[in-house]
């Protein structure tokens, strides 16, 4: 069993840029909340936030605070630094997490603070927020040991 702990991707490779559609997601994260956009007309969730609802073309949005509990849909262990900035950051775990209380939409994210050998598809996970020096907070996930 792989007992190494999953690290975090290097901060230097991500510079947050937002627009009117994506800013509420990052604003909520900065406040420690996971907020997901839901169509104000037909009620369908979508991620990432885009200007139109793909189901009804509405531009109305409600930002819904969700529990942050989710399911590990898929993951990969990044072992090799393909650019120099990654050298101190590997191994880190990239992940797709499904959010049952947001209609099953998925986030592209990381699993952190977990033993790599403990990861399995379908595992329950819970959101945490990594605060960066530049004030940006990035939602990430830990294995949710408390889940039933």
């Amino acid at each position: 069993m792989d007992q190494r702990m999953a690290k975090r991707p290097p901060e230097s490779l991500f510079h947050l840029v937002t627009d009117a559609w994506t800013k509420p997601f990052w604003d909520a994260a900065a406040e420690g909340r996971l907020a997901i956009p839901r169509c104000a007309d037909c009620g369908a969730f979508r991620m990432p936030p885009t200007p139109f609802c793909p189901h009804c073309r509405s531009q109305g949005l409600d930002w819904v605070a969700v529990s942050g509990r989710g399911t590990l849909y898929s993951y990969s262990v990044v072992e090799r630094a393909i650019v120099p900035d990654m050298a101190q950051a590997v191994p880190y775990v990239t992940a797709v997490v499904e959010l049952p209380d947001a209609g099953g939409v998925r986030l592209i994210t990381n699993i952190v603070d977990a033993q790599i050998g403990d990861l399995t598809v379908g595992a329950p996970v819970r959101a945490v927020f990594d605060r960066r020096a530049d004030g940006v907070a990035v939602p990430r996930f830990v294995l949710d040991d408390a889940a039933p």
Binding site: P9, F14, L16, D19, W21, V78, M86, I108
Partner: peptide, 18 residues
């Protein structure tokens, strides 16, 4: 960097292999 790419670059998806 773009508003759209933030949703995968924040997770350290650097290349197609990831």
């Amino acid at each position: 960097p773009s508003p759209e790419s933030a949703f995968y670059q924040s997770a350290g998806l650097v290349g197609p292999g990831h």
